[in-house]
Simulated scan of single mutants.
Amino acid sequence: MKIKEIKEILNAEVITDFSNENTDIKYGFASDLMSDALALVKSDSLLITGLNNSQVIRTAEMLDMSTVLFVRGKRPCPDVVSLALENQVTILSTEYTMFKACSLLAINGMEGIEADD
């Protein structure tokens, strides 16, 4: 799924944009526990979270993830935006809850990550 599609499906705001027309996000992973992300996430995944601190961007960077989605209208503080810019991480924000955002993405074809993948 392209970033543009994610933005449209979730009525999301793009806060930082390092995507291009070829950026493809295959999986979605939702968690506020970055330790879970470190254990399970693949690089071609969208990290969906309500956690709003620099650890989210550091986790994305460690996992070579290109995109983070903040839910529940969370907006990253300037330090988080700066870190995302430094690490070329695209940040999106949606007003939807985590459950609703995940549901809409799944309905539109995004796959989830299974613990045994």
Rank of each mutant, 00 (worst) to 15 (best):
L46R: 10
L33E: 01
G28P: 05
V56T: 14
L105W: 00
T94W: 08
E95Y: 02
K42I: 11
D36V: 13
S31N: 10
D116F: 13
D79I: 12
A30T: 04
E13R: 12
S31I: 11
D116K: 05
D79R: 06
N53C: 13
D64L: 02
L104Y: 14
E5C: 07
S45L: 05
I25C: 05
L38I: 04
E111C: 05
Y96C: 06
I6V: 15
V56F: 08
E86V: 00
S103D: 10
S35P: 06
I91Y: 09
L92K: 08
G73Q: 09
T59G: 04
L69Y: 13
P78F: 09
T94I: 07
T90G: 04
V80C: 03
Y96H: 12
N52D: 06
E61I: 02
S45F: 07
E13L: 08
N53K: 08
I25R: 07
T49E: 03
S54R: 08
R72H: 11
S93A: 07
S35E: 15
T90R: 05
N87C: 08
E5Q: 10
K26V: 15
F29L: 13
N22K: 11
E21I: 02
I3G: 03
E114A: 07
Q88S: 11
S19D: 13
N52P: 01
V80G: 00
K26R: 15
V68C: 06
A39S: 14
A39H: 05
L105K: 01
V56Y: 11
C77G: 14
D32Q: 08
D24A: 02
S82G: 08
C77A: 15
N53R: 08
L104R: 09
T97D: 11
